[in-house]
Nucleic acid binder design. Sequence first.
RNA 1: GGCGGGGUAGCUCAGUGGCAGAGCAGGGGACUCAUAAGCCCUUGGUCGGUGGUUCGAAUCCGCCCCCCGCUACCA
Length: 543
Amino acid sequence: MTDRRRYYLTTAIAYPNNRPGLHTLYEVIGADVLARRHRMAGDETRFLTGTDEHSVNIHQRAQELGLETRDFIDGMVRLFRDAEDALLIAPDRFIRTTDPDHRRASQEMVRRAFANGDVYQGSYEGWYCPNEGFRNLTDLIEEADGVRCPNHPDVPLQWLTEHNWFFRLSRYADRLLAWYAENPGVVEPEYRKNEMIAFIRNGLEDISISRETFSWGIPFPIRADGSEAVLPDGTPDPSAGVIYVWFDALINYITGAGFPDDPDAFARWWPADLHIVGKDINRFHTIIWPAMLMSAGLEPPRKVWVHGWLLTGGERMSKSRGNFLDPHDIVRTFGPDGARYVTLREVAFDKDTEVSWESFVRRYNADLANDFGNLLNRSLSMTGRYLDGERPAPGMGGPLAAAWPGIVGRYVAALEGCLLHEALGVLWEFVGAANRYVDAEAPWTLAKSAKAGDADAEGRLRVVLGDLLEACRLIVFAVAPYLPAAAPRAAEQLGIAWPYGPDGNGGPPVDGLLRWGAGPAGGTIGGAAPLFPRLETEPAPAG
RNA sequence: GGCGGGGUAGCUCAGUGGCAGAGCAGGGGACUCAUAAGCCCUUGGUCGGUGGUUCGAAUCCGCCCCCCGCUACCA
């Protein structure tokens, strides 16, 4: 085993009932940036993402389409993986809750909670809408002839009683509150933690963790009498029902760390350093999940980051509304790097943000084509023209050298605080400073004087271009987690070897390369070619 | 209803008692290395409304209007 720092991060797993939209992959892109940052920083990094496949909706959807459930989800999962590949997302494992090791992990978690006295048999009853499931009493519409579901007033509600297993969540209120109190920053942003504290203080009820009426799921491992739910031929006893999808879904995070098959791996990777989740599933990750872990005698995660939604026209982007952006459209127009950049620059990682195709085009042109792409291109072009492509050493006393340490410090701090949009904003302050430096020094004027025999101008020209190429090098290495394909190409243009693999592993700790003057001495640049061609038209995709 | 967040330039937002700001978009200019990009200058705002406190309020207090989140088993 190595003594490198390890870093384990996860996204929520998506339920693959449809092709994925940008609003679904948004957090996966963000997590991929953080994973690449940690790999390049030299941390032994594990990045887990995947799909949540035991939903009843998925089973029903497959039946509507006349497909075997497994065949249906295999096709859907293919769409997720294709979209993630197009966005250059490189997880260390893509977990599916139908994976065999996940079945073992989930059943083991039920056994542990049961052994700890936290699982008991009970019943759940209430008004059931055939289209939506159980409805809360306060949501129902009262009609003269009875109560109705607000979303499906024409469908009669049924009063159903489900016998199933419950988890004693109510037992964990004090321990959860203590966990929040003793671990500042364990749930961020702060207001998301406060919502959960209010929820807990309102009183926690036990939650049901099994379903007896469904067969699509992980077999519940225990019978009512407490015996192992296995038939004489070794197959699961169907009368024991299945584990409720939410209980098994959360467990993917420890399955992905090696639980329970590989104790050494699990000891290395657990607890997770970061769970990235959407605000709609905050409660599951910051109340239910830690309680499940506590019950099993395992540590809760070190941090849960709760992000917001992408909005369009003030409404949440979603598949059901049909107002989502297709990742493939975005990759086709902006390229994989541009797609990642505009998404993470335009959307604040800590709250809801309004986005549009037009805002993405504006951001791409302004930041990538005009500011950064052009900076790289003009710096290389002048080096080729004035110095025959020879790469001069940077000066140590210029304004860019002075500004860089502050920039990189704030940049890394923003990344560590999961403020991915802000990190880019900080880095682009430096891009702006470099562009202003070009105009302030006017290398074309220095070049004319140098050609006329002015030795001072010649020396000055070399320092200015050295500074600009060094600024470009630093930006490229810093921004590489966001622009994983463009960064090596930019390095090639700068004539600098790229020491990292396609997923960010394999090179030296990047912080050593993020110091002014840490680039290779001497050498020549490669060719200059625009990395981010300006978009002259705004071809909004149809539909 | 209760608790919490918010309403500032055309757009996205920063700004917690001292001359209303940034980026983008719009307009003008000088330059020319560059992807007609970059640089400089600039138009633009009853800071949701209203009443107070204060020498002074986007900022503090009261009331009102509007938007959003949480208020448990769709996931």
